[in-house]
Write a protein that binds this DNA or RNA. Sequence first.
DNA 1: GTTTCTCATATCGTATGCAATAGTGATGAA
DNA 2: TTCATCACTATTGCATACGATATGAGAAAC
Lengths: 235, 235
Amino acid sequence: MKERHAPVLRAQSVYRALRRAIIEQALKPGMKLPEDSIGEQLGVSRTLVREAFGRLAVEGLVELKPNRGASVAYPTLEEARDVFDVRRSLERLVAESLAGRLTAAQAAELEAHVRQEEQAHGQDGPESIRLAGEFHIRLAEMTGNALLLRYVQEVSSRCSLILAIYGRPHSSECAVSEHRQLIDALRAGDAARAADLMDHHLRAVVTRALLTPRIERDIRDVLAPYALSEGLTPS
Amino acid sequence: MKERHAPVLRAQSVYRALRRAIIEQALKPGMKLPEDSIGEQLGVSRTLVREAFGRLAVEGLVELKPNRGASVAYPTLEEARDVFDVRRSLERLVAESLAGRLTAAQAAELEAHVRQEEQAHGQDGPESIRLAGEFHIRLAEMTGNALLLRYVQEVSSRCSLILAIYGRPHSSECAVSEHRQLIDALRAGDAARAADLMDHHLRAVVTRALLTPRIERDIRDVLAPYALSEGLTPS
DNA sequence: GTTTCTCATATCGTATGCAATAGTGATGAA
DNA sequence: TTCATCACTATTGCATACGATATGAGAAAC
């Protein structure tokens, strides 16, 4: 029997590369994404880059304007609120699904994760942010619900973008203690309490982190208030 | 000022055409989707068909196997359960968001919609099914939450697929009376009751409609149990 | 007669090419 | 000087082309 290496389609690789680059803010919100320079950079043709753009657009990480190309999405504050609303709803479901159903191994893994978070808590590096996000992803994985996982991953990605734009510079978004409490509720099998903890936790993330715009996306948006104050009327 | 026809990108058109064809079951679950013949049929090149496939795959309407092409998704019963779980969670959010916030015009529109459903209730045509699905979409639209709308549309599409496979032939999936009750709760501003009504309504849809597989997708799946019962081991 | 090998065909994965569209700067008229 | 017009360029939208992979048929071997 021959070893069956999954072909690892390069289109997939391009997609993942861009996704990571956006989430890690190597590509900043609003940044233009020309097909050929990106293809050149990644060593593939525009075809594959376009394919990746399509998927990323569906997921709300890039914006795709006809004949004007792609750019890293720049969610408005309103969209941000929408995303967080949906996220709370989805993660409530995660909590309810998991309450009383965690295996010992799963509980142990989560606790190990939280300990990691505690360790990384001092340094406010990207490590801390990544870990906090991963905790939620791991929870979603444990539900065994593939669709729920996909949606949680999607809203998490978008939250990364949102926090990049509107978040406080150095707020570690997830309080480790809240994660710990959540695990306790899940072990205890208290679905209602787990769901509420998750809900409050995510609300807390918003109030802790969400603030004011910090990156300029488009000259127009930046200048609009100045124009107004001078009585100029942008077309 | 020149008349500015939106370019109506043809990729978009291909996507929508395929999507509708799948949802309306012109393309049945499990059916193979060769790029060439479909492109030919729609009058576009494979490039655009592939682009559409990518999006549809993300949304779970088609399955994409490397080097083996695309086929209309054939969700398992387990996936079906997952989809409905997520759907209930999302539509609870819809109900909560809308409770006490419906404008008079919106309420009137919903009621008009329900009246249409009542009229179509007699004939068990696709009209009745379409209307029932549309009710939920309209509700999601009214929340003003674009992400929530997208997700509800997505789970609705997948539910169409699922019901095509596992649904009873002539169960009108949504009881009109349940829609009416829901509207009442929304008008009354009773968020908790609205959410619970929605939840029960969707649970009822599942129990009313969900049944046993009716379409065979792959010889393998059909034969697997026979093989097992004979002690054969499919590779 | 069955099994395996080989080759032909169909289809996919990706790159490239061409036409079309917006942005940009230059030129000219008021 | 200011505004409108017009090429020019950059970049996209889409089609086509070519190599790669899988599937099926027929031949060869057992």
